[in-house]
Amino acid sequence: MANVMEAHDLAKRFGDLVAVDGVGFSIAPGETYGLLGPNGAGKTTTISIIAGLLEADAGKVEVGGETISPSAIGPKRRMGLVPQDLAIYPDLTARENLHFFGRLYGMDNNEVKERSNRVLEMIGLTDRADDLTKEYSGGMKRRLNIGIGLLHGPELLILDEPTVGVDPQSRNAILEAVEALSGEGMAVLYTTHYMEEAERLCDRVGIIDQGRIKAEGTRRELVNLVGQKDRVTIAAAGGQLQEAARRLSGLEGVEEAGADDQGITLLVVEAGRLLPVILSELSQNGISVSGVTIEEPDLEAVFLHLTGKALRDV
């Protein structure tokens, strides 16, 4: 079966800044595709082009075989967008918000009513459906934000970091909802900078950084890129962490080392053998270590491997 969405060589600059630089990927029906990358990687810009909100400088997007652009109407019927920033009317109720966007998706009154009830049930807002959304908690607003995007039962649901700033409970509810929709055969494009979300939800993941897709594949395929290496996370404080990471990357057996304000992350061939050396190196540089974890390779390790940077939850 043909892909739901195909993007080819997308490029977008904002002045001198290259936000998206030759991004291309495709999504098959029912597939969940993740774009995993840090802040400013170009995820939202890519998604805006795919959703037909932004004109690309170069490249082409096809949705259901039709080319998308801000003025394309047909392909937009097939997609539902959940923007990263909330886009709901604060002075309307959840039901009224759903009704309004339902009408814009071309549904008639009865259809909107019926679908709204189902969506409200799904996002757990049935009880509060007739309250103004400005009285909602942050998590409830986020859930409505998602609800609007899936109201018309799109072939492709695009979610842009839907769990940012959400409490763990709501977050879990959102992830479960996405899994359920995917189970019903909806294709999903999901951006995140949370490695665990990408691992849990996505059939395939594209790792994006500085406007480029660095690698793409299933979790297993991506992890294999790293080889048999362990990821060592050292919680540390004091001293020059960046400087220390640079020094550590020079050690035999250390593949990559990146630092952020919480510590240092390394990819190491034989972690058990190398750990004492690493720790003594750190203490010599006046860095006090408060904890060490050694993990099998995961997407975090892949990111580090590909970019030399730590992909941290922010």
Binding site: L53, S71, I73, G74, K76, F101, L104, Y105, I148
Partner: peptide, 15 residues
């Protein structure tokens, strides 16, 4: 500012 114009544009609705 509320992102509602863009959200409208993401639906099959012309500018």
């Amino acid at each position: 500012q509320l992102g509602l114009s863009r959200r409208m544009l993401s639906t099959p609705t012309s500018v």
